[in-house]
Amino acid sequence: MSPTGKLFATAAMIEGVTWAGLLIGMLLKRGLEITDLGVRIFGPLHGMAFLFYVVVCLYAWIKLRWPLWAMLVALVAAVPPLVTVPLEMWFRRLGLLSARTP
């Protein structure tokens, strides 16, 4: 895996973990009505992680010479909860996280 592929894998994992934290925070706030601390912590963290993931997707698209479909799928995967992690595993199997020769 290339350094850019490792960066993408890291960004996908961070995005997924912060999504999970935000979902748990929303459950504690709205579902169980215990505390809003999880949302106050993971809301901004997930926002930053989401933006970082989008930037890394665009960088990987250019640096790893992804086809357009791969970049679009990667961007769409950030919207539903926890999809970036299996997407990263799929991209790894396809070889999209390795350096491509011109």
Rank of each mutant, 00 (worst) to 15 (best):
M1Y: 12
G5P: 08
K6G: 14
A11M: 08
A11E: 03
M13H: 13
M13F: 15
I14D: 02
G16F: 01
V17R: 07
W19G: 01
A20E: 04
I24H: 10
G25H: 00
G25W: 00
K29G: 00
K29V: 00
R30Q: 10
L32G: 04
D36Q: 00
L37P: 00
L37I: 08
G43R: 00
P44F: 03
P44G: 01
H46Y: 07
A49R: 08
F50H: 05
F50G: 05
F52N: 12
Y53A: 07
Y53V: 08
V54I: 14
V56Y: 05
C57N: 05
C57R: 02
L58G: 12
Y59R: 15
A60W: 00
K63V: 13
R65F: 06
W66E: 03
W66L: 02
W66A: 03
L68S: 14
L68G: 12
L68Q: 14
L72I: 15
L72R: 12
A74H: 03
L75F: 11
V76H: 08
A77G: 02
V79K: 10
V79W: 10
P81A: 11
L82W: 08
V83T: 15
V83D: 07
V85G: 04
L87E: 01
M89N: 13
W90E: 09
F91W: 13
F91R: 09
R92H: 13
R92T: 09
R93M: 10
L97F: 08
S98F: 11
S98V: 13
T101W: 15
